[in-house]
Design a protein around this nucleic acid. Structure first.
Length: 258
DNA sequence: ATGCCGAACTTCGTTCGA
């Protein structure tokens, strides 16, 4: 079972690239982030024609998440993260596919920091940690996949230049502490489990020639519950997709479970 | 100190992203 996460940065702007990648990569499940489309503008027919059923939680202009399943309809479990009824951002959707619980996550960016956007990021993270604890307690196979907007460490394997990113919300101690609190509940960072060393960047900025000089960093992660981690056999970043015409600034990341 | 790019609405500028 191949499960991928892909921040598409606009599903309608990215639709030809997405369909092309689905055909090439043949993932069984895909978590999408940054749809930048409200529910009515989700390209359901094109996704279905590509062979995928879908659940989605859209939003006008920005945010928006979805889960696709090849030859199946994901069984929706929840839209939105519990813990704040006033939160209007579409950043979380959870569904079941083939007895695996899948979450598509778009964690707030948090820039500029400090400030209200950074506070929102940390508060949202707390809600995710609380919900993740409940998912762990089920002892089921669970995959938390998405754009976490956190660079886990200052290692060259995670970020091209810690100095360049030192003031960014993605590298702040509070952001990293929150990611560690989540992982230390008992989740496995799948890409690092398979590739303990070496750069596995998932994002390269459109600006300042970032792709050309490989100025990337690692912010898209798949976290596995113990029951899912027991089945992990492979993981990788589809780096080549970032170099195409009209590419997203993120590239797909995938795992394979027995 | 800012924009560098790209997408989408607020639409020929502004907001957001990372």
């Amino acid at each position: 079972m191949k499960i991928a996460t892909f921040n598409v940065n606009g599903i309608n702007a990215r639709l030809p690239r997405l369909v092309e990648w689905l055909e090439e990569a043949q993932p069984d499940v895909v978590c999408l982030q940054e749809l930048k489309a409200d529910d009515a503008k989700f390209p359901e027919k094109a996704i279905r024609d590509a062979g995928y059923g879908a659940v989605w939680h859209g939003q006008k202009g920005f945010n928006g998440v979805a889960i696709l399943a090849r030859g199946a309809d994901p069984a929706l479990i929840r839209m939105g993260l519990p813990g704040d009824p006033d939160d209007t951002h579409s950043r979380y959707v959870e569904a079941e596919v083939n007895d695996v619980v899948i979450a598509s996550i778009y964690l707030p960016n948090g820039n500029p920091q400090p400030g209200p956007k950074f506070d929102y990021k940390l508060a949202w993270f707390d809600r995710l940690i609380a919900h993740a604890a409940e998912l762990l307690a089920t002892e089921r196979p669970v995959v938390l996949a998405g754009d976490y907007n956190v660079i886990p460490t200052d290692a060259k394997d995670d970020v091209f230049s810690p100095t360049a990113m030192a003031q960014d919300a993605l590298t702040q101690p509070e952001s990293r502490a929150a990611l560690r609190r989540l992982i230390f509940q008992g989740w496995t960072d799948a890409v690092r489990a398979i590739h303990p060393r070496g750069p596995v960047y998932t994002f390269w900025d459109y600006q300042a020639g970032a792709w050309a000089r490989d100025a990337g960093f690692r912010i898209d992660h798949l976290l596995l519950s113990p029951a899912a981690a027991d089945r992990l056999v492979d993981a990788a970043v589809d780096k080549e997709a970032r170099g195409r015409e009209k590419a997203s600034d993120h590239t797909p990341v995938w795992i394979r479970l027995r």
